[in-house]
């Protein structure tokens, strides 16, 4: 991800993942599943991962949500696929730090940095983190 990414590119990436979400499908029984919803918003998303020998060999999701929740979860699935559990945890940690305006390592986030402005719309932080929070829970449960 080039450092010079501009606003127009960020918008395009979000819209692309919203209108054409990657890995939006239902995994079979071999996947671990976490259901994420909230009483204060209307996103309802299932996050799924297939983990073999400490590696996330596949990551997918399904459900309904706003542009921010769908696009961020879609980007997350691409980002985490093929990573080890500890690599995934590091990515999640840095992503959440970015969202909450704390120091973070942009290098590990790749496309996910398009959500760096989420704090402008504080009510949507839960949308931009629904997939990442779900995956964090899922991985914790797998330990």
């Amino acid at each position: 991800m080039p450092i010079s990414i501009n606003e127009m590119m960020m918008r395009e990436i979000i819209m692309d993942h919203y209108t054409h979400p990657r890995n939006r499908r239902e995994g079979d029984a071999s996947y671990k599943t976490i259901y994420m919803d909230s009483d204060s918003c209307i996103d309802k998303i299932y996050v799924q991962a297939k983990i073999e020998n400490g590696i996330l060999v596949d990551v997918c999701f399904h459900g309904v949500g706003c542009a921010i929740s769908i696009a961020s979860t879609s980007i997350m699935t691409e980002l985490l696929k093929g990573k080890t559990i500890s690599e995934a945890e590091n990515i999640i940690k840095n992503y959440l730090a970015m969202i909450h305006e704390e120091p973070y390592d942009a290098d590990v986030l790749d496309e996910a940095i398009v959500f760096m402005n989420t704090s402008k719309q504080a009510a949507r932080i839960k949308c931009a983190t629904i997939g990442f929070n779900g995956m964090e829970k899922l991985l914790k449960g797998d330990k």
């Binding site: 706003c66 542009a67 719309q121």
Partner: peptide, 12 residues
């Protein structure tokens, strides 16, 4: 447009 995205735009 998903309702929540509309509400966020209106917030802005």
């Amino acid at each position: 447009v998903f309702a929540q995205d509309t509400a966020t735009l209106l917030n802005s």
